[in-house]
């Protein structure tokens, strides 16, 4: 086996089989919990509680209808959607211009500002959640979507700035100079030239912002009670009692996770870059 390094690409048969098996194992391990969740959501309680795992069963949508009726999943999904969309929109409005300034302008303290944006990634949400809870309580913001929209800005604005700054840097500076000669002011350059050219990056940052907001649990757990509950909070709320309604729990889990998984597969190329915040290209 060791001797056959004559040409890259022609690997011996046995090694190829091992390669095949290991890849297959990786795929199965990655997909299995997801598969198990979805199939559990389609099972009757008796099939779920059977001591031997049931791989073949008559599928039912009963868990989904029950989850909608009993736990009001619909309202929490709508809450999640409103919060995620609003915070994403505001993050873009605030973050994209800031990213442009960082990518294009030179000013004092730019380095410090950049570090400040980055360091938001490192701060534990519990640190902000405690005082924000007290402040929100005094301003009657507890259990409102607005409280969540505001606090989600703390992690969404930095991620938008990060991804968009990268995108704006890739636009040739000559375009700006040409536009200046045409009599554009810097706002017009940003609005008419840079923004359309950076649209793909902005879209990616929007998707990230949406995913992070949709997935968030700690703030939502602390800041909501009934009206503004987001989907992940509801998913946690029926984890008490003796016999857990696993079918309904997994139906909720599927409804919460599936949109994000589909979204992420669409942007899978950018996903890693977004998660490392561009630390590697």
């Amino acid at each position: 086996m060791a001797g056959s390094t004559s040409k890259a690409g022609s690997t011996p048969q046995g090694f190829n089989l091992l390669h095949f098996i290991l890849l297959l194992v990786t795929i199965v391990v990655c997909v299995f919990p997801f598969y198990w969740m979805v199939t559990t959501s389609l099972k009757e309680q008796a099939a779920i509680l059977s001591p031997t795992p049931q791989f073949f069963f008559p599928p039912t949508l009963g868990n989904y209808t029950r989850a909608f009726e009993k736990f009001d999943i619909g309202a929490s999904l709508v809450n999640s959607l409103i919060v995620a969309l609003s915070t994403t929109a505001i993050s873009l409005i605030l973050g994209a211009p800031a990213a442009y300034a960082i990518a294009r302008f030179d000013f004092k303290g730019k380095q410090d500002l950049w570090f400040w944006f980055i360091s938001n990634r490192m701060i534990s949400p519990i640190v902000v959640a405690l005082p924000f809870f007290l402040i929100a309580r005094q301003f009657h913001l507890l259990d409102t979507q607005l409280a969540l929209i505001l606090i989600y800005l703390t992690f969404n604005v930095p991620i938008v700035v990060w991804i968009c700054a990268d995108q704006f840097r890739n636009i040739p500076k000559e375009l700006d100079e040409a536009a200046t000669l045409e009599g554009y002011n810097s706002f017009a350059i940003f609005w008419r030239i840079a923004l359309p050219l950076a649209a793909p990056g902005i879209a990616v940052s929007a998707i990230f912002s949406f995913i992070f907001s949709w997935n968030e649990l700690l703030y939502a757990l602390v800041l909501t009670r009934t009206n503004a509950k987001t989907a992940p909070v509801v998913a946690t709320s029926f984890l008490s009692g003796y016999e857990l309604p696993w079918g309904q729990i997994m139906a909720t889990g599927t409804l919460v996770a599936l949109p994000v998984i589909i979204f992420s597969i669409i942007v899978s190329r950018q996903l890693v870059r977004g998660l490392t915040m561009g630390a590697i290209k």
Partner: peptide, 8 residues
């Protein structure tokens, strides 16, 4: 898939 699954 694992990375994208909602942590909760």
């Amino acid at each position: 898939i694992p990375m994208a699954t909602t942590f909760a």
